[in-house]
Write a protein that binds this DNA or RNA. Structure first.
Lengths: 261, 261
DNA sequence: GAAATAGTGTCTCTAAGACAGTATGCT
DNA sequence: AGCATACTGTCTTAGAGACACTATTTC
């Protein structure tokens, strides 16, 4: 399992952390990308990331990079390890293993410029997957998308996308943006309100410009969703279906809280 | 995202692969452990593992180690990446990041001796977790156990534990050993037989010494189980099989939601 | 009033839990 | 025969999908 022989020199490996940072903006699931300022893949969009420092864990490195790229506080969002990628040819310059992390957060301010000259910006996931990404980042992004979609089924992380306080519609729009299809508002409400600890009513309400005012909620304590909220439906509504083409089907014009702060 | 500056020397990191190899023997979920022959943790049981070689992926390294430790062919069993562990203090000799893999296989012959002098042997998971393990391997084992339990809910990997051909009871015993409680034979049968592609009838049957003969099956093509077979029941039934003993051994450590490490 | 969205109620259907009852081998 | 296990059937209930209906706001 580890260093069994003092004479033996283990292969030299560089370890980095890459971040798949998702948010929902304008009804779209978006991912934070930087534009590479150097070779290889000069000019290509890439996932933000960086080296792991001596003395820090991978998660600490991920949090540090996250803060550097977005100026975001760790406590605001959800972070989880996604997968380690180790193809020896994934970086033409040498042996670089990367551990990808998935971060989910509410609609963030346009990100501050990253540590290096590269500019960071949000891009709809559908656009990002339609084009080319540096390294194996397209695969990492796909894995992150699938993980996020799956997490919404089994946990309450969807609330991590919402700015508090939020309405049930806001929460539903998160599911619709991530899964790529619409949900029945009535059944969705029944599910989330009857799941103990998912939502905590604030007693206040949000008065939109049109339509009936909605009650506002905060995140509850529950982390798990059991039974899960499975994505089996794909309600036939105009707009395509899920898959990787995602986004064209999001709620038209979100008048709710989602975009405010 | 990777090597941005040729002058800059990234921290030196060693990368290893550790294996959580599960099988079901004598109605118990068992894990393959080696006895450490050197310091640190001399004499402690540990998960098998080793360095990643130049030019191979982590998964290839895991398969190689698996073969070295058990003499097992890759095709016989299920292998999946579990998690990367990176606490800077997890190995007293230096900076060692390990990527753990989960391997599930049918009741294997007693493992061949490992590559080093250390002897490999099967131990019930409950015993392994009751005692001390080297490094952070107890935590890795716990994560592996939870992952295996969860996989049984959502996939057909339970069949990977079975030697073909197998009966539905054999399959149920796998679930019972991994989950640690008994299942209703009737309802279990209904679930697995009605899941398209889980089981493929061979037409043959197994004639036990006592009881009615049972039909024999092979693994089908289906990988996913939807709807899932959730472990919500915990049927109380006497009958001192492994099932009853396995249960209390897991501190509920959730590696799922908040990134771990 | 109309338009629009929030929220309630309810019918149906699937699938799981419980468990009775039948089948088929063995000694 | 008696036992043990395999297998079938059925009643009940939890929960999801579908969707009609009511409520509350702005214009």
């Amino acid at each position: 399992m580890t260093i069994e022989d003092a004479e033996w020199k283990p292969p030299i490996v560089t370890v980095t952390v890459d971040l798949v940072i998702f948010t929902v903006r304008d009804g779209d699931l978006q991912v934070l990308l930087i534009d590479r300022g150097i070779e290889p893949y000069l000019g290509y969009p890439a996932l933000p990331g960086g080296y792991i420092d001596k003395g820090e864990t991978l998660e600490e490195a991920a949090l540090r990079e996250l803060h550097e790229e977005t100026g975001l506080d760790a406590r605001t969002l959800h972070l989880e390890q996604l997968h380690a990628y180790s193809d020896p040819r994934r970086d033409p310059r040498g042996r670089v293993i990367t551990v990808a992390y998935l971060a989910l957060g509410p609609d963030l301010p346009v990100p501050v410029s990253g540590t290096d000259a590269a500019a960071a910006s949000w891009a709809p996931v559908s656009d990002a997957l339609a084009g080319r990404l540096a390294f194996d980042h397209a695969g990492i992004l796909r894995d992150g998308l699938e993980r996020a979609r799956s997490q919404l089924e089994h946990t309450t992380v969807a609330a991590a996308f919402c700015v508090e306080p939020f309405t049930i519609s806001d929460l539903r729009h998160i599911y619709e943006a991530v899964w790529g299809f619409k949900l029945d508002p009535s059944n969705f409400r029944r599910k989330v309100t009857r799941t103990e600890g998912f939502l905590e009513p604030t007693g206040e309400r949000y008065v939109p410009q049109i339509g009936r005012p909605a009650l506002l909620y905060r995140r509850g304590n529950a982390a798990a969703l059991s039974p899960p909220l499975l994505r089996t439906s794909q309600l036939s509504s105009a707009g395509g279906n899920a898959a990787d083409r995602t986004m064209p089907l999001v709620p038209q014009e979100n008048a709710g809280l989602a975009g405010s702060d």
